[in-house]
Design a protein around this nucleic acid. Structure first.
Lengths: 225, 225
DNA sequence: CAAATAGTGTCTCTTAGACAGTATTTG
DNA sequence: CAAATACTGTCTAAGAGACACTATTTG
């Protein structure tokens, strides 16, 4: 057995339980940024809402634990979790000493909709502007997740590949407004900022009211969808 | 004992060892951004270099473990660690399943100098442009730490409070050049960007060659120093 | 005075924002 | 044609970068 500089072995150190908790964000048809919540019986047996999470399995990767918890709790698959922060207050979970690695996952509405619409009663979406009180420090995780995603959408067109390609400038703009949480983004300046970062297909959207809109692709087309 | 939704208790889950590893960055008198390394006997008993780190104690906060490891391994105190990332490859440490929470700490040369100059032989600084091969994934941690600090210095004057107040624009500019890893920053545009974020003392530096320079304070003066 | 350093005026370029105009479709 | 939507031209303001100029000190 290898030892560290003090001659102790790994077994000589206390080990915390390690959990992952995930803010799953999506944009609903009303163009609101929303987060997925799961029902959870709290200390007193009352219903409460929390983010989906799970404890780490033996030698499991954190991202795999995130995907496993989303599959088990909400039947969601195939995503790319990003780490946000480790919550390490020893009192944060009254079951014991639990570190939680907070993650964010962004999914298209098309993927989330079936889960919350026809799925079980203990999964729901809440708009991020109106999240109910959550268990543990999950309110903080939601805030960090929203900030993270908004920062990523600030300068790049749809970095999470929420839109199906090809898409129009209008669709892209509405998506960015939803993520940013604003009602309106000026179309002309938005176009000029984004156009150089997109690939023009040369095609236009057919059978529309008004002048047909050009169709674009992301430069680095996502493998998703 | 509280249980989770599956009826299992905390003890039913495997628990990884959890470590912290820290990139301590400073700017040396030659104006190079440098990282603190500690000597470590590797698998074969040969000398190798690594970042200072330690295993978490019972219910200890991560930031406290970072401070404890810096005190023990290098005699450094009084800092504000920031989390960078959790490294979770189960094979990353051949002693067993170890999660490592990487941190970055930025310290003034005045604090680091005594440790590396008169301190023990198994602590040294390496310029970040020329870091030797490190144990584990510590090379990656150094890269992330440097990126983190550079991003923080991009738009704000000395956010880590490396300079003692008051300081001149020239001192601030040289510091920012060191952090960014460039030989020169154009003085006029640098001044215009930073001046509005500083508090002018109205005083000037005495007994200098050339016109005396104005002395500035950070707006939100640090509690350190 | 020369040398050295501090600081300013100003030009160009780029970009965001605002706003009005032109272009192309449906019905 | 009107209505609707897509797109462009152009003005203004702000900021970065470059460069020359002025200002204030020491010796």
């Amino acid at each position: 057995m290898y030892t560290d500089s003090s001659g102790k072995t790994l077994e000589d150190y206390p080990r915390p339980s390690v959990a992952v908790d995930t803010a799953v964000l999506t944009v609903d048809p009303e163009r609101a940024l929303a987060v997925l919540l799961v029902r959870r019986a709290d200390d007193l047996g009352r219903d409460a809402w929390a983010l989906p999470g799970t404890f780490l399995h033996e030698k499991e990767r954190l991202a795999d634990a995130v995907l496993r918890s989303l599959d088990q709790k909400a039947g969601l698959r195939g995503t790319e979790p990003r780490q946000l922060h480790v919550f390490d207050d020893s009192e944060r979970d009254n079951r014991g000493w639990v570190l939680s690695v907070a993650h964010v996952v962004v999914l298209p509405w098309k993927v989330v909709a079936p889960v919350v619409e026809v799925g079980p009663d203990d999964v729901r979406l809440a708009p991020v502007v109106d999240v109910p009180a959550l268990e543990f420090d999950h309110d903080v995780i939601v805030r960090m997740a929203v900030e993270d995603v908004r920062a990523r959408y600030r300068h790049e067109p749809d970095p999470e590949a929420l839109l199906e390609e090809p898409f129009t400038m209008r669709e892209l703009r509405h998506l960015h407004a939803a993520v940013a949480g604003v009602a309106h983004i000026p179309p002309d300046t938005f176009r000029r900022r984004m156009e150089r970062q997109l690939k023009d297909t040369g095609r236009t959207k057919e059978r529309t009211v008004g002048r047909p809109a050009a169709l674009y692709l992301r430069r680095r087309s996502s493998l998703r969808h």
